[in-house]
Design a protein around this nucleic acid. Sequence first.
DNA 1: TGGTGTCTATTCAAAAATGAATGAGCCGGA
DNA 2: TCCGGCTCATTCATTTTTGAATAGACACCA
Lengths: 300, 300
Amino acid sequence: MNEPDWNLYRTLLAVLETGSLSAAARTLGLTQPTVGRHVDELEQALGHALFTRSQQGLRPTDAAQALRPYAESLSTTAAALLREASSAIGAVEGVVRISASDVIGVEVLPPILSQLQAAYPRLSVELSLSDTLQDLLRREADIAVRMTKPRQDALVARHIGTIELGLHAARSYLDRKGSPADLKALTEHHMVGFDHETAFIRASIEIIRQQAPDFPQNLHWTYRTDSNLAQLSAIRAGAGIGICQVKLAQRQPNLVRLLPDFSLSLDTWVAMHENLRQSPRCKAVFDALCEGLIDYVRSA
Amino acid sequence: MNEPDWNLYRTLLAVLETGSLSAAARTLGLTQPTVGRHVDELEQALGHALFTRSQQGLRPTDAAQALRPYAESLSTTAAALLREASSAIGAVEGVVRISASDVIGVEVLPPILSQLQAAYPRLSVELSLSDTLQDLLRREADIAVRMTKPRQDALVARHIGTIELGLHAARSYLDRKGSPADLKALTEHHMVGFDHETAFIRASIEIIRQQAPDFPQNLHWTYRTDSNLAQLSAIRAGAGIGICQVKLAQRQPNLVRLLPDFSLSLDTWVAMHENLRQSPRCKAVFDALCEGLIDYVRSA
DNA sequence: TGGTGTCTATTCAAAAATGAATGAGCCGGA
DNA sequence: TCCGGCTCATTCATTTTTGAATAGACACCA
């Protein structure tokens, strides 16, 4: 039995993502019959049924689900290959894909990246807002800005510094509700916070417990979202008191820091796949990111 | 511009590996003209020359070299996908690829694996003898036996125990040359050791320095090889005194341990990609490997 | 209930990819 | 020096893959 055509994996992934032959055909620029034939061919080659056909689409079997991560890995690697090929050798041009948290991506990176693009006009930047380090290994991004120290051997990481977090609220909110005199008074306020308790959140809560034993346990969470960015917007809009970056709040005239003794800090890192050190375009972006973020962290 | 056919990457890799269109065509089961056309097509799609043609083969350009790791990653991932597809859902069958050092692979694993295959007749094991942890992330193997603690987040690792290393020689050698009375006497002997000084070797030398200050600096290395397995064979054949696993030497009637106060220890780990925990065939092999190796380490 | 949207399956002609054969250049050994 | 080995390039017939069109089945909505 010969190795199946690698294109079959691409159409497999498209069918998994879209849920139907027709939709997959549209995204792939093929037609529904060919996509169907690809699936048939792959099923025959692998010896498993991959989908149960029905008139309103295909439902993937467990076998297809098991193969999905591999197909995704193929797809991201192929995309990374194309990015690598997007630049001439030795030139700072082409596409670089950056991954960062939403707040960093929206509030901090734009000036840094626009300056970078002024310096290298033939450079394109793709920005993916997500928070896992996995995506560097899977090559979903070339460079990542992260708040945890990368522990992967295959990554190059540079430590940027520490970002300070503090409690903030909008003036409009404080005009209505007044300012809390101490941490215990927070129970009387509307709080903006996280929706789901991730490992990172649990760790943060632990740190808060240690550093600020007065921090109340049961707060009145009136606005919960897992997006830091949405939290920031909510605080700005006067929805309540929440935690955000101190440096960021200083730039916003209508945000006030509360109880400045309460403070959390986030270590910040910029990480990149080791292989990409050879690539001038990635190295240029890496260096510019480090420089710009260090400026941001140290800014008064 | 459309995304290039993924098959083009496969032929690119084959051409890079074989060094000629014709040879690549043979390994791919295609013909030389099609391989040539694939390369042309890819060059056009990427906008780079990938090879400089000549009558005695193709020389890859820097651009092609830069793409090589990506193509290799595609290839290993496609192979991993096929392995995953080689087993029915929930069944312990199909192909599992194990990576281990040469000594472990040749001397320790066979009984463990043959027992495993007796338990699961539809299971196939591929054994790759290499020593880097990288290959797990690149999916070059499903499971690895390693002598260093894995630091990758994406890996599941289990600690097996400590393997003791000691100085050994064959009786035939000792009959000719006599036994060294102490470490200093090693300078009078033929020694079997490593060829290149890797990071691991340097670390080991450092440990030796600390634990055995008497260990001579300048030994008479008469047999150098980077393969542990070849070292073991050389010691067995009476080429000289060398370091090998104590447990392993105990099984060999003609090997004698020398200066038993001298001892090194290696921490042993079995590691696997986190995703594969879902896969019964990998989990079964992982568990069997752990059990078998623990038995080996603890055996009298 | 009938119309419209979605989906998959099938057929058949057109387009694309492939292979066999051949030519030409280079290298090394007899 | 010639021969056999290897290489890549080119041509043309054949095979394979693809797409357009169509039919049938289901779901939703007026």
